[in-house]
Design a binder for these strands. Structure first.
Lengths: 189, 189
DNA sequence: AACGGAAGCGGAAGCTATTCCGCTTCTCGA
DNA sequence: TCGAGAAGCGGAATAGCTTCCGCTTCCGTT
């Protein structure tokens, strides 16, 4: 848990950044390119890409890391303007909306769901922290069941998005979020 | 909704069965072989396999169809011996247990979650029916929230299994199932 | 029983993700 | 400044999933 990170060589840092930039550029253009093409666009070999990101999903997760961090941070303001239950529902919606219409998000979610994925670990922890923040407010207010856990909420949200990825399943996803919220609000076990 | 099915040619039926048998044999032996190897084992070409099963996941779903049907049927007996809430929780556990320790089940769940997958459609409907059966009993008894839907429950269960596939995530999966159950029991919206 | 066309078959080719390993580039101490 | 060795690079090779299409087999009709 200390500064065991050995610090990367300058060229490695540069390459990592170039890869991320290239991927962002392509994804933003609606081109969900795979590792091979991203590497070419970045001007590096595939091998290099794979040294920085263990697989396609990890790359996607890293590309959208910023965006998910914004989602996590939004929890604070939502909580400032609404009661916990409303804030939580709004936050869940925002989470799901971010994932919609992004081809690569299936990958991102798989990466987030994978407990062994190193790349996604921080992001997931940040999301869980944000969720916990909202939950704690609700617990303090007596609205939410004590013991509700942020990481569970995020896992459930991921599960919903994984199970209902298609646009025509949006209604079902909404019902499942309601169900989840109902579970969190339930006062007894 | 009528008998529009044109009835397959005899050799096609035979091949389909041979493919399923070969896949069952391999999977049972712990060998999660891909389409190519299953086809060889079945003594047919890959093209033939793909005419019968649109992709790897659909094949896996078809292989485990029997097993999932058993799970669906178990709902009845569980309901006969326990109050709805207990029956539902037991049924969810059985569902999840069936999926554990089976490499191919990730595929099966993805196939079930895919609303466009023709192969998995019946199975999913059967599971949803079973779930609805239990839910209805609970609604009648006043234990479950009116309007609870079997297809939602199955989707949520799939989501949980997709989000917590690793053995070390079993505890989290259990918590999520509790949360789900709490949502179903909540008496108000 | 034999013909024509539809249904089905096989497997090579194509595509993409991932691995492997010999070569290159950086870094740091002398 | 230079050299040694670690860190990193590139891209050919490997492997698995899926598609494509020319050939074969079946089946209802005559």
């Amino acid at each position: 848990m200390s500064t065991t990170e050995p610090r990367r060589r300058a060229d490695a840092q540069r390459n990592r950044k170039q890869i991320l930039d290239a991927a962002k550029r392509l994804y933003a253009a609606g081109d969900f390119a795979g590792p091979e093409r991203v590497a070419r666009e970045a001007g590096v070999g595939v091998g290099t890409l794979y040294r920085h990101f263990p697989n396609r999903e990890a790359l996607a997760a890293a590309v959208y890391d910023d965006e998910l961090t914004l989602v996590a941070e939004a929890a604070g303001e939502l909580l400032a303007t609404s009661p916990p239950a409303d804030a939580l529902r709004a936050w869940m919606n925002r989470f799901a909306q971010r994932l919609e219409h992004k081809r690569a998000m299936g990958d991102v979610m798989r990466a987030l769901a994978d407990s062994r994925a190193v790349t996604a670990h921080d992001t997931r922890a940040r999301l869980a922290g944000a969720a916990q923040h909202v939950l704690d407010a609700g617990i303090a207010a007596g609205t939410f069941r004590p013991g509700s856990r942020g990481d569970d909420l995020v896992a459930a949200l991921l599960g919903i998005c994984l199970a209902c990825p298609e646009p025509e399943q949006q209604e079902q996803a909404a019902r499942l979020m309601d169900l989840l919220l109902a579970g969190v609000r339930a006062s007894t076990i």
